[in-house]
Each structure stands twice: as structure tokens, then as C-alpha cells.
Design a protein around this nucleic acid. Sequence first.
RNA 1: GGGGCGGUGGCGGAAUGGCAGACGCAUCGGUCUUAAAAACCGAAGGGGCAACCCGUGUGGGUUCGAAUCCCACCCGCCCUACCA
Length: 949
Amino acid sequence: MAEKYTPQEIEPRWQAQWVADGLYKVVEDPDKEKFYFVTMLPYPSGDLHIGHWYAMTPSDAAARYRRMQGYNVLFPIGFDAFGLPAENAAIKKGAHPYKWTLANIDHMRGQLRSMGAMWAWDHETVSCDPEYYKWTQWFFLKLYDMGLAYKEFAPVDWCPNCNTTLAREQVWGDDRHCERCGTPVIKKELNQWKFRITRYAQELLDGLETIDWPERVKTMQTNWIGRSEGAEVTFTVAPDCLSDAQPGEGDLGVFTTRPDTLWGATFMVLAPEHPLVSRITTPAQQAAIGAYVQQASRLDEIARGAVDKEKSGVFTGAYAVNPVNGARIPIWIADYVLMTYGTGAIMAVPAHDERDFDFALKFGLPIVPVIDRPDGRAKSVIWDGSVTEGFEAALQGAGIAYKYLTIPERGRFFGVPLESDAEIDAFTAILQAHLRPGHWADIVGRRWQVVFDDAVMTLDSAAADEAIMARCQAGYDYMGQFRTTMAMWSDVAWYSDVLFHHEYGTMIHSGAFSGTPGGRAKADVTAWLAQQGVGKAAINYRLRDWLISRQRYWGAPIPMIDCPTCGTVSVPYGDLPVVLPEDAEFLPTGESPLKFHAGFRNVTCPQCGGDAERETDTMDTFMCSSWYHYAYVTPYHKAGQRLSPNDTPWDEAQGAYWLPVDQYTGGIEHATMHLIYTRFFTKAMRDMELVPFDEPMLRLFNQGMILGEDNEKMSKSRGNVSAPDDLVVRHGADTIRAYLMFIGPWELGGPWNSKGIEGVARFMNDVWNLAVDGEGQIGNSSYDEKAVRELRRTAHQTIRDVTSDIEAFKFNTVVAKLMALRNALKAARSTAIYGSAAWDEALDSLLLLVAPIAPHISEELWQRRHPGPSVHVQRWPAWDADAAKEDVITLVVQVNGKVRGKIEVPAGVDEAAARELALADPNVQRHIAGKTVRKVIFAGGSLVNIVVA
RNA sequence: GGGGCGGUGGCGGAAUGGCAGACGCAUCGGUCUUAAAAACCGAAGGGGCAACCCGUGUGGGUUCGAAUCCCACCCGCCCUACCA
């Protein structure tokens, strides 16, 4: 009986041996091409999850493959060790965050080692080590010196459970809850440190084109940065509404993406927090405005998320002047205008902006269309009592289609859809000829006219709106309920699809610009605004500055000091790190212990020597992870030494060799957080002249998520968690690794299946038995050239296919193809090929190709066959194109696209021969009998399609 | 509302213009066994004795040929959301 495969024995033995041999020691070697491979570092929660295996072991396989290809590979690991869970554990269990974290890291190191990954442990970094966060603080000072860090008193999102502020991207969902604990956030006004990431908005956008990242991430970042092009236009508060104004004080700048709609701006809306609100509100509106502003701020505190919320707002009593036509327009406040975007004020163009349209209808504000409908559609509704006999016949005579509409209690109407200018002209003429005195009908969608028996009025201004309504209300009491012409029209359900649009189109009702085609309108108006000195082209970004202050203990202290004499003063570089005091008290009040720690808080001002106070906020942990892939290069560089602004956080020779990251892998959930911050960091580092490149990671791959057997996210509460430690005991790390890679495309993730892993376990057993079992074989078949060639072909095709698949991170098909090679070897084992040169070649190839996937079994078997250097330093096998080539192929014969025959032919058969063979096939003959062959297609060297009719 | 990804046997999935279902799981039959498990060998998309027919969410289109390309729709998941 042959020796059994026992991963439980083999795996720890090799893991220890590799450490002893220094197999994964990394040394810079200028003669070798480097490959810097990083997988996102774990948070030391205390227990390794199968998700970590899913993220890390395929990365390890890819890194090992690079190494076997001859690259000098750096594949480091570290811990993102600051963060709330440690502090919460401290409050709950009394364990100090530092001890708690280090104990977790210690446990996790062991778990990580059980993966058998080729981590460069010499390069490990732990972000909560003072020698690490010394540099995190150094970066803060550098950013501060560059004017990229600033302190601002502003409303921020606050998690009442975690007792800290959150960055915008850490607030999730419709109910705006905390990313970490799920508690809905509230608004708080606090003095906070921020980084000017917005200064790099355009570069962050442009840089995306230079990196090989998934389109999905690029799209998410593009949307998050949210560039929009338009113009800044200066409206002014009407002089009588801001009596004591200094010059320029009444200027009310707005950002708009649609300067071509300026003539349709019939009112303005300010954010409730806008500084001008209190200045311009008239005494009569004071009470209402005050109440609304207060309600708006409270609403922020409770829940801002109300989707599809009814529009609300209050008139300030003040007016502004529209710079393009001098129109006097009312200024309102409303919470749909955000203080944090653009200028906190908008010009409202209700005819072409849906939010403004809703608002105007609700509050009776005039709506004036200023962009023609590109589709040319218009509609008219005429009460049959408004027109004289013969109207209907005239419509028919002119070939104008119409239908009858019945409006309850108002009788019968003609509904006339109008599709062209000519039709509208003809229709207007007929209408005018048939309208009874005192009656009217309207044309909406285009033209925007009300045709009276004696006049035509056009809705081309707020004044016209008033005039039209005056006349309609005078003519018909029913219209008294409507405040604007558009409100009157919107009462007619049949009009609903032509009243509003936001397309670009020919400008109308816009003074001298009327008639400007949509393609030019925006540019033309912008140029004119600049020339008039009332506006200019402008670009706005949705991206906000990065809020990094956290009101918690367990983070890197912000190295700043507040001095009553000198103001905000930075800690001198040479004094870093600002160390977290170990004797802090963790109380369940939620307040940061640093706030109450006198020894930490009270300092001497480095500038004047007087008493001063230390900043007690710590930094967002994304700050630590923004530069950890630089820290790996030389862990804890200059440990124990004083720093200066001219330092480099890593050994410069090492940095020059390894940087930047060639391949990065990790989850998609960081698309608009870590992955944007670290790009910002690198661009700032380039401006500090620390690095000569613009992007931190050249290639990125996002793996999917491993789910529970029930296809749901794994969670303890669902009880669907697969614990990796148990799995290692049962199956061994190699089997888990291979199974996780086999389960499906890496980027998609998928459900764990405890049955499915059996197939991979059998594979490992088979590989083992193929190499170890001395019994199979021989039989009495004679040595067969053809069978040898076939085994070699399979082996070389496998090398070829596995190489291209591993290159593309298609691990699932890599494993499938290795299984197929296993099948071929199993079949060959009971033939005379067993033990031949071809057999040895195929088996060695299998072991080499398996090595990145299953490092232990491949090493054990390789050493048994070839005692000496590790399988992991062997050269990745090359395929022989000749050996891989098929010599017989199946010629598929189709008749009219359906398969009617398959013929074995020599590979490389020419068209004439293929055609002849195909047509001679008896079944094919049967299908073309009695029909005319129209065409014969020969494709791909292996398919003939005979087209008959 | 906007954007993205996806829909293929009982299941995970392969095939990105040329034999649909590679590889594996589960299933069924067989060998071994007192028996079962394991292991090994074999079968297998559905229908039909067969020739064949039908099959990649639905409907159309392009093509000699479509899971694959185009159009419309349905369903699922993810991201985003009053961004002017």
C-alpha cells in the first residue's frame, strides 16, 4: 500500500523548512526585474476569515507565478492596526487597545502562516507601532506645510454610537448610517482637520486614463469626483433689498451647467445656511425664514435621507437682478440647494430643470421656456364650444390629425398633436379663423402661445406670464385657481409629456441669443458672459475635501498644538512621534480619553514656550493605509531617529528599486475611499519630491466576495461562516487554496460549497498518487508512439493555457485545466507510457504548474522526485508549440448552419480538401440531396458550412 | 431617478462570431464488499426507438453561422442619488 497524502503533516513541515531556508527573504537585485505585488492589508480583528483566504491566496498564486517567471518579487504583508474595534473592546473588556491589537496580530500571524503564502515577513509593518505612525504624523506635517491640511469649523457627519466624525464616504445608504456600526449619523458643528484633496480633483480624474485598473473602479471614481462643466454667473441682490451694502456685497454668484438657459431663470434659491440669507430677508419674512432655517438644520440632525421628499422653501422677500435681461426675480431659500456644492445658491430655471420645475409649480413661480424642444412636438387642446362650425372640417381639410378628449364636467375638447412648424402655422391660422369672441386656445410644447380671437400672446417672460394669466382669469373664472400659465397647462393631463424637457436645443425667448442652435448655445453664452463681465466658464467638482479628524483615542495623534498666543502651531518634525499615552482611561462615555488626559493635553508651545494645548483628535485610519505600500519598502525606517522635513520615509535605494506597486489586489468596497486617498497621497508625495511617478499602483484587480453556502453574505448571526482554521485541519491549506480558486471567476466571488471542495481534495489525492504510488502502470500494452505524442500534447497545451489564464487571473480555468492534465496522467498510468520520459515530463510539468496554487504538495512531491532546490525557485515551464500542436482534428460539417457530419482529418487540411470531404460525407449528402449548393464556407481550419437552397 | 455588472443543465461554472455545457459537484448504473463508506470504471441538457427536433431570461435584427454583435423589454445584484 502506497503512502497516503497527509497535508496535516506535510504543510507545517514545509512552512517551517521554508522559513529555515530563507526561501521568502527578499533582496534587491539590480540584475533582476522587480515585481512589487501588494494585496490589501488586513485589519487585525483577531480572527482570520475565509474572506481573507479568498482575497489573499489567489494573489499569492499570482505572485509565485511571477517569481517562477524570474522576477524578483516583493509580496509583503502588514496590519492596518488602528481603528475603533480595539477601543470598543477596551471599553467593554478593559483590555488596552494596544495589547488587544498586538494579541490579535500575533494570533493572526499564525493563521496567515497556515496559508502557506510567500509573504516577505521581513517587510511587515503594523500601523499602530509608534515607529510607523511617526511617519504618518510626518506626512501630516508635510501636507500642512504644503497648505494641503487645514482646520475648519463646519457641520460634519457624526456617529452617535462610535462617538466620532466620519468622512463623507463612510456614511452609507438611504438612511445615512455609519459604515462601521450602522447607526444613523447626525450633524454636528466641529472644528475639524481636512485635507485639500479637491486641489487634485482634475489630476485624479486624468490619472485614471494612465492606469490599468478595472473600468468599474474608474467609473466609480469618475462619478465620485463628479466633474461638471458650466459657468459661474453673477446675479446681484436688487439694491433696494440690501440697502447698506458695500460694493460687491450684493453679488450672488451661482454655478450652472446650463448658461444657455439663463433667460429662463425666473427666481433664485439659496441654501438655508447661505450667509446672505439673514442680510436680505425682509422684516415681513423674518419669522418664516427663521423657522425654516431652524427646521432645515434640525432636519439635518434627524434624517436627511427622505427620498422623493416634497419640495419645501420660503421666500426671503428680497429680489435679485438677472444679469442677462435685468429681470427682477424673487430670492427663495430651500433645502434642495446644498451649501456644500457650488456656491450654495442657484439660479432656478424651472422650464428646464426638474427640481426647479416642481418647486415653481408648488409655489406659483413663473415658468418660462427658453430652449426649443429638439423633437419639435407641440400640442393644443380646444374646447369645442370655443370654435365656430367648420373648425373640425378645416382641420380635416388641412390634413391635421386630432382626437376627442373628454374632460369631466368641462365637456368635449379637440386634442391636436402638432409635429412640425408648418403644421403649427396652418393650425394657428385655422384657429384664429374659428375662435369665438372671448375664447382662446393654447399651443404648448413649442411656440408656447395662447391664441385669442383677437391676439396671440407668447409665454416668453415672467411679465408675459402675468399678462396671459390676467387675461385668462378675466375671461374664465375657472382659471382663477392657477397662479401661472404653466400651472394652468399642467392641469391638462394630456399636456404632461410636452411641458418640460432638459435637452439642449435652439434658444428661444432669449433676446439676441434667440435662434442660437443647441450645439453652440452653451459656449456662445459663456463667451458673452465673460465679455460682459458677469460670468465666466467654470468647472465644479462633487469631490469634497477629506475630513481626517476622529474624536477617538486609537489612532495616530494629529501632531498639532493650539497656543493661546501663537494660534495653531505644528509639532516640530524632530519631536515626532506624538505618542499615545498608555495610561489613558477608557470610559463608556464615548468621549476620547485623550481629552481628559492632562499629561497628553498640556504642552509647552514650541514657538513661544508658553502653556498650550495639544490637539486631541486622532487621524482617520485611511491616513495610515494611504502610504503603507511605501512603508513596506523599508519598515520603520529611521526607527529611533529624529526626523526632519527633508527625510524620506524609506531607504531611497530600496524605494528606487521597488516602487511603484506593479500589481494591487483587493475588494471593490474601497473604490471611492482608500483607492482615491492613496492616489491623492501619491500625487502629493510627488509634489514633495519623494517619488518620481504620479500613480501608486499600476494595475489593480478586484476580487469578489466569498458567500456562505446559502448564497448570503457570511456572518456569525446567520451561522453560515466557514472557519478557515477548521478547514485547514480537515483538508489542508493546499486544498482550500485550490478550491477557492476553482469556485468561479475571482472577480465575481460566489457561495462556498462544502461538497464542492471534495472534487479538489480528490485532485490533490490524485496528484499525490500519480507521483508517489509505485504500483499503477505497465499492464501489457506495448509502448505506443501515438499515445506518447498525445500525452505530450496534453501536457504542453496545459502549460500554454495555464500560463495565459494565470496571467489573466482566471484561476478557475487554471485549476480546471490542471485537473484535465491529471485525468490524462491517470489514463496513461495503466499503459506502457508509465515511467517513460514523456510521463516524467508530463508529471513534472503538472507539479510545476500546481506549485503557485498548492505550494506544499508540489514542494513535497518535487523534492521526492528532484531533491534539491525548492519547486518555487524552478523556472516556469515553457511549452513546445510543436508538441502542443494537434495532428488530427474533427472537421465539423454544417448544412445551413446545422451540424450534419464530423470527419477526422489531418490538422492543416486545406479548403479544397475539406470541401471535398465534407460534400462526400453520406449524412451531408442526404441533407443536400435535391438542393442547390449556393455557397461553401470554410472557417477556422476546422469547419465547413454548406449553404443550400 | 442616474450609472454599472450579470441572467447558460439539478448546482458552481466553461465557451466572447464557428461542435453549447470544458472542469468539478450532485445524480444514476457497474466493480470491489456480508453490507455500507471510500476508491475505481461508465452514463448523463430536454424530447424521441430512431432519423431528427428543441435548447444559453423574452421578443426582434445583423450574419453562411449568434450564448457571444445590434435594438427593445423583463428579472436579479452592486454603486450612487435634490450635485444646480
